[in-house]
Design a protein around this nucleic acid. Sequence first.
DNA 1: ATGGTCGAAAGTCGA
Length: 264
Amino acid sequence: MSRPLRIASWNINSIRARPHLIEQLLDGHAVDILCLQETKCEDNSFPRAAMEAHGFTHIHLAGQRMHHGVAILSRVPVEPVARHDWQANGEARHIAVRLPGGTVLHNVYVPAGGDIPDRTQNPKFGQKLDFLGRMTEWSGALADPSILVGDFNIAPHPEDVWDPKALLDVVSHAPLEVETLGRLQQSHGWIDLGRHFVPRPERLYTWWSYRASDWQASNRGRRLDHVWCSPALAGTARGLTTLVPARGWQRPSDHVPLIAEFAL
DNA sequence: ATGGTCGAAAGTCGA
């Protein structure tokens, strides 16, 4: 039997500003498929040749100027299947491909949602909830065995944040958005591989703010990035690595990569 | 402790 397929998910915070991070990830880890969020560039300025030089010859992009943007880079043949616009506003936040064998891989960048967890005071928070609501309608009708990765911008459990009390009224851990994400998870029975492999109450984070003077010493992290899979695929999941040291690399992203292994 | 730091862009804004 061939070795498991390694699928990485990473909010890179501008692909053009951080090509060195891709190099460093690939030097240390065998990645077959790389899902990126916040590429922040239009498709015609994506560093396609540099990625092809790493063997990612199958490149599928949903980018836009300045903000957002997602990409799936693959060494193995994959077929593009969808680019959902769940807000119907043109923002590039989703791309999906079909893997060999038929599993569909979805890469999503959920809206951050602004600062105040109340849609009447903060329309961005309402947009985040509505985005998740439309994802839930979509997810409830999903027939294919699927993998859903990305920056969900929500840390659902108390152990997913450094201080659950301090973050109760902070967007990313507010009860309303956590409940809304829970409905999305229930709509398909999604398996949260982060907690499948690192059960609570162990703490697990994937993001640390740039604003801390020493991210490692203060360790005020949040688990905003996720890999979910269909129940039918749970038995194929072989592991999920959260590459925490990447937060300490040169000119880092504020998010670290997740690397999931599937024996598909 | 309402600052703190990034990127894209050339103002600030979004994160």
